[in-house]
Design a protein around this nucleic acid. Structure first.
Ligand SMILES: [Zn+2]
Ligand SMILES: [Zn+2]
Ligand SMILES: [Zn+2]
Ligand SMILES: [Zn+2]
Lengths: 136, 136
DNA sequence: CCCTGATTGTTATATTATTACTTAGGTACT
DNA sequence: AGTACCTAAGTAATAATATAACAATCAGGG
């Protein structure tokens, strides 16, 4: 569960705490609102903390949502890339390691001599739970 | 090169034209600026056209850039998903079909009974040309 | 003609992210 | 102690991206 990273600063710890407690992704401004009672006043306090947390691998940014989730993927540090399945009905996000898929993408980057630095894989759809409850 | 789609309306054709002429991705507001001489005045004129064009598969949205590219992928209609390699040095975007990768992602969705509706795959890095010129 | 649905125009506003500048703390060296 | 240096944090203003709400126009079909 723990990744290797420097000690978190006060603001980083506050933001990471909120994200860890949340049941799903939060936007930067949702975090700001949730942290006003902790003294947060300005977006930059959130964005700066998020930058570091993403850098440390503790938090992932979901590009298609402009939102952030705490990493709950046990093996995340072992993998170059995480993928996300985002339910458009309930908002839940499931993180997984698309190892085979990454192999194929890496093969493509080798063939093209593309120096990969970051990969985004996001699936949008409806999760099993929501599909089941819709049928009722 | 041509996809199956209804005739484009005036605004859709203007937006698609600009994107087709562009050498890389354009943001909605860049399109708006480029189309002011064609009578465009407001963001919605661009966003509404883009919505349709993306729907028709003529244009792709790059989530990690908040920008749009005309589809130049010959076989795009034959594939469920396109992937994009975005050079962070020159801004060029290369589209390709990650067929093997999608197979793996689809296997995951079947196992999880996740009803997939849309997939985003975006690679960030440095393209071959930029790597080569950096060495000079 | 009248109804309907799609498209467009226009204004205002919401949401997301960054720039610029300042203040505060800690560490290292003198 | 004093200074230089670095990182973090605070604050205000603004930029960039996206949508809501409502009015006007236009094309077909009955
Ligand atoms: Zn993770
Ligand atoms: Zn769901
Ligand atoms: Zn395409
Ligand atoms: Zn390049």
């Amino acid at each position: 569960m723990a990744h290797a990273h420097p000690d978190l600063t006060k603001n980083q710890a506050l933001v990471f705490g909120k994200l860890s407690d949340a049941s799903g992704p939060l936007t930067a401004y949702a975090l700001l609102d949730n942290l006003r009672e902790n003294g947060f006043r300005a977006p930059l306090q959130v964005y700066r903390a998020l930058d570091k947390l993403v850098d440390y691998g503790l938090v992932h940014r979901l590009e298609s949502l402009n939102a952030f989730v705490a990493c709950r993927h046990k093996g995340c540090a072992d993998h170059k890339t995480a993928a996300f399945a985002i339910c458009e009905t309930c908002g839940n996000v499931q993180e997984f390691s698309p190892d085979r898929a990454m192999e194929d993408l890496l093969r493509w980057t080798r063939e093209q001599e593309f120096k990969l630095s970051r990969t985004t894989i996001e699936l949008r759809g409806i999760c099993r739970a929501c599909s089941a409850s819709q049928q009722a």
